[in-house]
């Protein structure tokens, strides 16, 4: 049975090494074994057989940034819940009230951004919200 912290984390380390070796082996193997035939047509980005226009480094919808920002806000909140859940038996009602205050604050922010339309993905949703 593992006792010290080194012994507990030793298998994680070995598993990490296996994961790295295996993932690298997959890429290297196909590089070594696969044949390569280059030509000009093959070396263009795939756009359903049509000659590609421009490149993919163009602008994309700001909604993706919005989702990423909201995710960071609420995920940090979710991570706060884990240590609270582990010691919950000892905290009992005190823990519940404390977390209720925290969650209500977070949820009021959540409903605010919901009202503001930050969670609406399509324009029809947004229009419906305004009415």
């Amino acid at each position: 049975m593992p006792s010290s912290i080194t012994e507990v984390y030793f298998p994680v380390l070995v598993q990490g090494v296996i994961a790295i070796v295996l993932a690298a082996a997959l890429i290297v193997l196909s590089y070594v074994l696969g044949k390569r035939v280059k030509n000009k047509i093959k070396d263009t980005p795939y756009e359903s057989g049509i000659t590609p226009t421009g490149d993919a480094r163009s602008r994309f919808s700001v909604k993706f940034y919005l989702v990423a920002m909201l995710f960071i806000l609420f995920d940090i909140e979710a991570i706060f819940l884990y240590p609270w859940a582990v010691v919950y038996r000892e905290l009992k009602m005190f823990g519940f009230i404390e977390m209720l205050v925290f969650v209500v604050l977070i949820l009021s922010g959540f409903f605010y951004i919901w009202r503001k339309g930050a969670l609406d993905w399509s324009y029809s949703d947004r229009a419906r919200g305004k009415r």
Binding site: L33, G34, R36, K42, D43, P45
Partner: peptide, 10 residues
């Protein structure tokens, strides 16, 4: 594994 291993230039 034996298929062509494409490494596009772009």
């Amino acid at each position: 594994i034996t298929k062509e291993d494409m490494m596009p230039s772009y």
